[in-house]
Design a protein around this nucleic acid. Structure first.
Lengths: 191, 191
DNA sequence: GAAGTTCGAAACGTATGCGTTTCGCAGCGA
DNA sequence: TCGCTGCGAAACGCATACGTTTCGAACTTC
């Protein structure tokens, strides 16, 4: 029985990790409404009771799964111009959005956000956080005179990211990451 | 028992209509995974057996509901410039996306498209159809010299619509329809 | 008005899934 | 080595929802 700050039983950490991983994969394959505690347990190779030992109910598990496994996709930007950073970042986001476990969770997350407050709060907080990096890069580019001065950085950023997500969610043809530079030129003006 | 082309029993038409309407409202409120045949029947004021008389199973009903009730939102564009038409159209789409029964069905439709082939096909076909009008207007604006010549009409259109959907689906602050002109200026260039 | 449909209500069987509990086992820490 | 604790398996009660069937009433058509 570990006191505060003590090391905790490795069995607990292992169980939590393997269950969360399985939950995310289930979310990607089956969607928000399709996940069952039993299937998560089966995929994780774990007893159902183990899940309920660590999470009070299914919603908590799902919300936790979303929060834990948003991939840390932050390429190092090095010493580049704002435009180059944005192209790099967008290309990277595009690759993730086009195909990844996380990508396949997006519809589940959108649906979950619509139905559940906790999922919604995480979803908005997370995407705001991601967006912020781009907004600042756009502002920087404007300050450096590389982009038109009349741009609203937030609106322009929504246009950049919106294009990727729109293609992925509303059409059959996901955005080609190689088009990132062209997209930047379209929204922020040609080079 | 009406032969081909004969008038059909008005009770059948009425049942179908009231059931589809109820199904769409349920989809808007509860999402793709939340709809139950019983709740649709209750909302429609109809026996559950009546639903199964007209649709073989729940998925068929849902797919049918999506297909039937996409609102016909086509404002008449009159005799305006391409830019004005686009601003008008975007403002209109923005209003629908921000708040309407159909808007609240979007997450359900995205999730449904991810999980079910029939829903996906309709979803893509429908959004492609909507997009086409805008693509042609952008092309027209380019031809008239109103927009930059180096624009890819399809990419630009994805950026325009993507902004609306991104704001609605990924952030807590939906697009303000009054910003339509600014969005057009951002993506297609200032006036 | 009569014949034929469609309808609503209700009950049914089946399946699924949530969340709980129990119990023997195995791994952890001391 | 020994007590403690997390674990997997299984069974359980309960609720929900699918899809079917039945039956008398209401409606449409002729």
């Amino acid at each position: 029985m570990p006191e505060r700050g003590e090391r905790i039983d490795p069995r607990i950490e292992r169980s939590r990790a393997v269950i969360l991983e399985a939950a995310v994969q289930e979310l990607a394959e089956l969607g928000y409404g399709g996940v069952t505690v039993e299937s998560v347990a089966a995929r994780a190779g774990v007893g159902k009771s183990t899940i309920y030992r660590h999470w009070p109910d299914k919603l908590d598990l799902i919300a936790d799964a979303f929060e834990t496994f948003h991939e840390q996709m932050v390429p190092d930007l090095g010493d580049r111009s704002a435009r180059e950073c944005i192209e790099l970042l967008l290309g990277h986001v595009a690759e993730v959005v086009v195909d990844s476990t996380f990508s396949r969770c997006i519809p589940a997350m959108i649906e979950g956000a619509e139905r559940d407050r906790r999922v919604r709060e995480f979803h908005h907080r997370y995407s705001t956080q991601r967006r912020q990096v781009l907004i600042e890069l756009v502002s920087q580019g404007i300050a450096e005179g590389d982009f038109r001065a009349d741009l609203d950085p937030e609106l322009a950023t929504a246009a950049l990211l919106g294009t990727l997500f729109y293609r992925r969610l509303m059409t059959g043809e996901p955005f080609d990451p190689g088009q990132a530079a062209e997209l930047v030129a379209t929204v922020l003006g040609p080079r």
